[in-house]
Amino acid sequence: MTVLLFTIIVLAGAFCAGLLGSLTGLGGGVVIIPLLTLVLGVDIHYAIGASIVSVIATSSGSAAAYVKEGITNIRIGMFLEIATTISAVLGAIITVYLNPSFIAVMFGLILMFSAVMMLRKKVDHSDNDTSGKLATFFKLNGSYPTAEGPKSYAVHNVVGGFVMMFFAGIISGLLGIGSGALKVVAMDNIMRIPFKVSTTTSNFMMGVTAAASAVVYLHRGQIDPGIAMPVTIGVLIGATVGAKILIRTKTDKLKIIFAIVVGFLALQMIYNGLSGKL
């Protein structure tokens, strides 16, 4: 395959990945890595390097839209970044020593988990009951504007959320994805932060976490310009278009279709990993 053809195919694939990723909230990386590895036969280490760059692009690009609403809790983000940056760097260091088959299987499992999380109805667990000492000490509790004036919320189980974020960071560093599904578990389910705050805060963290592991990938030669260029451009344009469509479309049916596709990709990754084809 010539470089030109490769670039065009990856560009088109990355566009679709970015589009679907932003419409369904799953992110672009989870689709682009199977596309590169299963369809184009790219080594998974290169695919991971290209994917992490696209994670930075989409998270920073959409953050501009989010921060206008002014509900990112920078303190929660910064506090949890202690966990995610350390673990993302760790993950990025370990990943090259792992067998590609093992990475593929793990990727498949995370993919399945993300698909299930996407279909599950999100429940807002937030409240303003008394929260723990740690949340108060680290000034994590906050408020966000609503039609009826500012609404306060309390942050729960700081230790549990921190540990879960550490895990999310490792996965992000190992697999080159934003691991948004795991961050949702940490922030919405464990720490019980309201959606309006957790979505934007998680996005804020994603860019910083991805940057930390991207630096390691770059030094190791995992970010190849020939792959990273079409992946980043494609995913970013796709995600931007997706965000525009999202405002006036219902995505329930799309999510089910996409979950089936993602589930299929996940099985493929696991199968190829187990049979040693990747």
Binding site: M1, T2, V3, F6, T7, G41, V42, D43, G226, I227
Partner: peptide, 17 residues
């Protein structure tokens, strides 16, 4: 990059850091 390399062969099958 494409101006210079578009006709070369894209080979990413093996990770060669």
């Amino acid at each position: 990059y494409l101006l210079v390399a578009s006709n070369k062969i894209a080979d990413y099958h093996v990770f060669k850091p």
